[in-house]
């Protein structure tokens, strides 16, 4: 998938390290949290790329660094031919109109002292779009688009439920007609019956507006539902990247295999028939990731004479199916 389609953004060798400092008066850097450690992928126009991983895998940091909410330690993000990492001032502002973000915790990401009208309208105000009347009309249109009553324009965020708050966050993200929307766990704080409403809304908006999504989540079944392609992250690196169907029917990385077998299926018969791969131990600290293949400490098929010594490259084993494992051929 993706061949012949237009590339909207290219992420190349993205690295983000957070310094660990000690000392109260004289701070000194004693180490680095290697949150994102060399991540590369392409985003095609109009697709949804799912980015999955567990806590501490660096998936959220990738999204935030792409928008330059964090400054990257290294690497490039080429959006429509321009490297976002090198932009400054007005040029950066102009590019930022084309990329927006939906956050995980809808309530924490909405200013409780602002009405939802001014929250949704703020991007328009900041970027000086239209006059007051036009902006208000646009806000009402946006609210309608996400399934909220436009007459609620003067209400405050706390008057809404979690699902409705997330709709407000989505309306704000769409205010400037972005091309790429980074959805950072947009449904994980919502109840099951509400999650489906929001996912259906995101899919409808994508069809209507031709949006491209980077959908960051830890819920594999939801990611499979919404994504065209999926990238799996572990400890700051992409371990596997492929289109949705091949990653689910034919996962080539032992971590992807374990991750998928660990997702409980709401069906007792299937659940009984499944083979579960239960990984031992916890995710190592990103402050001191294991040498070589960073998954070797938990890998059920590790070969100790090789895996701890050499870091596997992310290589294209089948067309469009990338995997970072020395022995991936064995799982085909």
């Amino acid at each position: 998938m993706g061949d012949g389609r237009e590339i909207l953004a290219q992420v190349r060798g993205l690295v983000k390290h957070f310094p660990i400092s000690r000392g109260t008066i004289i701070k000194r850097v004693v180490g680095q949290i290697r949150a994102v450690d060399g991540v590369s992928f392409d985003l095609y126009r109009g697709e949804t790329l799912g980015l999955v991983g567990e806590t501490g895998s660096g998936k959220t940091t990738v999204g935030r660094t792409m928008l330059r909410l964090y400054e990257a330690t290294e690497g490039e993000v080429i959006f429509d031919g321009v490297d976002l990492m090198s932009l400054k001032g007005k040029e950066l502002d102009r590019m930022r109109r084309r990329i927006s973000m939906i956050f995980q915790d809808p309530f924490a990401s909405l200013n409780p002292r602002m009405t939802i009208g001014s929250i949704v309208g703020e991007p328009l105000l900041v970027h000086e779009v239209g006059n007051k009347k036009e902006r208000q009309a646009r806000v009402r249109q946006l609210l309608e688009q996400v399934g909220l009553n436009p007459n609620f324009i003067n209400r405050y965020p706390h008057e809404f439920s979690g699902g409705q708050q997330q709709r407000i966050g989505i309306a704000r993200a769409l205010a400037l007609d972005p091309e790429l929307v980074i959805c950072d766990e947009p449904i994980s704080s919502l109840d099951v019956s509400i999650q489906a409403q929001i996912v259906n809304l995101l899919e409808r908006l994508q069809d209507e507006l031709g949006l491209t999504y980077l959908f960051i989540a830890h819920d594999l079944s939801m990611v499979r539902h919404i994504s065209d392609r999926i990238a799996v992250m572990y400890l700051g690196k992409i371990v596997e990247l492929a289109d949705r169907d091949s990653i689910y029917s034919n996962p080539l990385h032992p971590y992807t295999q374990a991750l998928m077998s660990a997702v409980p299926v709401p069906d007792p018969d299937l659940q009984e028939a499944r083979v579960r791969i239960i990984l031992e131990g916890d995710i190592p600290s990103p402050a001191s990731p294991p040498e070589g293949c960073n998954f070797h400490t938990r890998c059920p098929v590790v070969r100790l004479d090789h895996c701890p010594l050499a870091e596997p490259e992310l290589r294209e084993l089948q067309p469009g199916h990338w995997v970072a494992c020395h022995y991936a051929e064995d799982f085909q």
């Binding site: 109840d191 019956s193 489906a196 409403q197 996912v199 259906n200 079944s221 939801m222 998928m260 709401p266």
Partner: peptide, 25 residues
């Protein structure tokens, strides 16, 4: 029925729209 319908499943065709339960708890 609604709760099961609003869940995407790893063993199902992902193309189908989720049948969300309308309204709020």
């Amino acid at each position: 029925i609604g709760l099961l319908g609003s869940l995407p499943r790893l063993d199902e065709d992902p193309g189908t729209e989720l049948s969300a339960i309308p309204g709020l708890p």
